[in-house]
Design a protein around this nucleic acid. Structure first.
Lengths: 245, 245
DNA sequence: GACCTTACGTCAACACCATTGACGTGTAAA
DNA sequence: TTTACACGTCAATGGTGTTGACGTAAGGTC
């Protein structure tokens, strides 16, 4: 027990570590991201992070209750970086596209960290700012509230889900990553037309397309559909209602 | 080294374990899934799996080169379960919808395992069968090959990405899961209208909508867009071309 | 400038993890 | 019946997150 847990972020006593480093939430997150970027997700352990900081591993527990809390801080940092220096233009179609691609790109820039973080809701400042921004794009763009909310949900989850999916591919522990890639040549390239006619017929196209991310196209599809649902252009009531609750 | 690695799946010598169990790839995968379903993803360790099987942990390495190989086997089993007892009807829209929801549901039924597996390409039989099936739906449905392939990619990645995303929410280590849920009430419910007007204005709708999965709606959006791209209905050339390579 | 409180960095320990090399036994083939 | 070796077991290695106890130096107070 004890009041071991973290004190609030503002006032600390800041005693330098044995090796001279002065810790802070900020420094720890940045170091973690650097560590992960340089040596892969598997390099992110409390011990290694401690070493990279020049501090005893257990010192981290003065700043984060556990590794999960650290993870959330990292996640929020990635969300923040996605929005850095960007403002909405007022064209909801272009703005959504930009937002989606930015989130996707930001996470992919740190695939190892993204993988750990993309599934979480942080509730931290960068995240709430992004939520506010996207909702604003939709509401100012003319989507009525109930629709705006549903679209927000689908849009954000799709961006994050694809980010995680693609990050996973980029972040796999080397060996596994090669295995995944090889599968497309070794297995799918050799399937006979008798048993798998469709794969055999489209294999060259398939192999080429699977190289990249499916997200940009999926995003365009979503935007196309949204245009149809938009009250001004598509006529909101006719097509949008799916049967699910 | 030694020829420790796995012998091929067919002929084995099957000596019963000390506790009387007779191991097999099949039994191991099933036990792993049961273990994960009952005690969560974190319960899936070589040691615990060994214990659940009634065997020495290291015996697993006679069947799978490492834990990653075991994971792929688990992933393929989930893909298999998604298709079990379903056949295409010939209506591409309905078939895609069914496939997508089935994959999503199958993975969510084993969220802990899905989380570990949804990002991988297995190249195993169940997977190739699913790929063949989906490509068939699109090609038989009248999509020209290049478009069919792009759509396949976006569709499959969307299904798997959302499956992982939603599985993650369902699979979080209890404590973290509660934290994520609470955030919606504690943080987003209290944001003042001055700083976050859009969130404040739509909060009740938001909180309600974020409860469920964004996938069904995202899937409907994709299907709507596909209708527009389909050569017969939409007029293939006019809208589909995005600028990405 | 001296005192006191306590935040926080350090140490040591615990219980867990994946993986591997050596070993010998029981099985299936000859 | 004999033989070969597949495969289950054992023991050990070097990793992991986390916690309780401890003492020191920093900050506020006088």
């Amino acid at each position: 027990m004890s009041a071991r847990v973290v004190p609030e972020g503002s006032r600390q006593r800041r005693r330098p570590t044995k090796q001279g480093a002065v810790l802070s939430e900020r420094l720890i997150v940045d170091t973690a991201l650097r560590l992960v970027a340089q040596h892969g997700a598997e390099a992110l352990s409390v011990r290694r992070l401690g070493a990279a900081l020049g501090a005893d591993p257990s010192a981290l527990y003065r700043y984060f209750r556990n590794t999960d809390a650290l993870l959330l801080a990292i996640a929020d940092e990635l969300i923040g970086r996605a929005q850095e220096g960007w403002e909405a233009t007022g064209d909801w179609r272009a703005d959504l596209r930009a937002m989606g691609l930015r989130i996707h790109r930001s996470y992919l820039a740190q695939p190892q960290a993204a993988l750990l973080a993309a599934h979480r809701t942080t509730g931290r400042p960068h995240e709430t700012r992004a939520v506010e921004k996207i909702l604003g794009i939709l509401r100012d763009g003319g989507f009525p509230d109930p629709l705006a909310v549903r679209v927000y949900h689908a849009f954000v989850d799709q961006a994050l889900a694809f980010a995680a999916q693609d990050a996973a591919a980029a972040a796999l522990p080397e060996a596994a990553g090669e295995a995944d890639t090889e599968v497309w040549g070794e297995v799918y390239g050799r399937l006979p037309a008798e048993t798998h006619p469709h794969i055999a017929a489209t294999y060259p196209l398939l192999a080429a397309d699977m190289q990249g991310s499916g997200y940009p196209f999926a995003l365009e599809l979503m935007l196309t559909a949204l245009e149809a649902l938009h009250p001004d252009t598509g006529g909101g009531a006719e097509k949008g209602h799916t049967k699910r609750k």
